[in-house]
């Protein structure tokens, strides 16, 4: 993949297996600063494992991860990467035992030692960015709807002003209207930060809304990549089948 500018994140020939199951078979992926890349693919194609490999949550057997031009090769490198990235998990992964505001400012509060008063103010500012009222700050995650949980998770992902944000199925489980609202917030906040974004999703409406570029992952490899405008004329039967949601085609349904 040729980039005229240095990618913020690059995966080279990443392989990962769980027991006998080979999930990633040589993933190559690069994201430029400020670019929004969406990875699509069927269930079990290895999308989540790709993100987790980039973040050091799983250790690839083979391959390399570069962040801002530096090879991420040890715990120190992974720590440096995580300090400059944000992540929105599929189900939010909010901490049950903490309030909404403590969740939002977890990193500044617990990692960086920010005072609670200042952290509370910062949390409320970031809640406002995702259209949540200050009154939500003292609630527990279990008291929030699915859409509100996603917003809180988004506020937590952007609070440290990251250079790169990962989104794992950001609209899963949401109704179409709430999903669209979450997509709008993602676009707005990623642009406001000038950050790059790597998202994985099955939701084609979400893809069209948030992607600059789309990559298709199939059987552990990237088989197509192109601008979102080319999604309907990709020339790839796999992409065509996936985009149109057909059971018939080269991709076998995961049942």
């Amino acid at each position: 993949m040729n980039f005229s500018i240095k990618p913020i994140l690059e995966l080279r020939d990443v392989h990962k297996a769980f027991g006998p199951k080979q999930v990633l078979r040589g993933v190559d992926l690069a994201v430029a600063p400020g670019q929004s890349l969406v990875v699509i693919g069927g269930s079990g194609a290895g999308k989540s494992v790709t993100i987790k490999s980039a973040l050091g949550l799983v250790t690839p057997e083979k391959g390399e991860v570069f962040f801002d031009g530096e090879l991420v090769k040890n715990a120190k490198g992974i720590e440096a990467l995580r300090r400059r990235t944000g992540m929105l998990f599929q189900d939010g992964a909010l901490f049950d035992s903490l309030t909404v505001w403590e969740n939002v400012v977890f990193a500044p509060l617990y990692r960086d030692g920010m005072g609670r008063g200042q952290a509370n103010k910062l949390a409320i500012e970031n809640l406002a960015k995702v259209r949540l009222p200050a009154s939500a700050a003292e609630l527990r995650p279990s008291e929030l709807s699915g859409g509100m949980q996603k917003r809180v998770a988004l506020a937590r992902a952007i609070v440290a002003k990251p250079d790169l944000i990962f989104f794992d199925e950001p609209t899963t489980g949401l109704d179409p209207i709430t999903a669209d609202a979450v997509n709008n917030l993602i676009v707005e906040q990623v642009k406001a930060l000038g950050a790059a974004a790597v998202s994985i999703t099955h939701d084609m409406a979400s893809v069209r809304k948030i992607a600059d570029e789309v990559a298709m992952l199939h059987e552990g490899r990237i088989i197509w990549r192109g601008p979102v405008s080319k999604l309907d004329s990709s020339g790839s039967p796999h992409v065509d089948q996936f985009v149109n949601g057909r059971a018939e085609g080269p991709i076998k349904p995961a049942i």
């Binding site: 973040l55 949550l57 300090r83 998990f89 992964a93 909010l94 901490f95 990193a107 617990y110 937590r156």
Partner: peptide, 8 residues
């Protein structure tokens, strides 16, 4: 995993 991504 979320804790780890927040460098905690």
């Amino acid at each position: 995993d979320a804790l780890l991504t927040l460098s905690a």
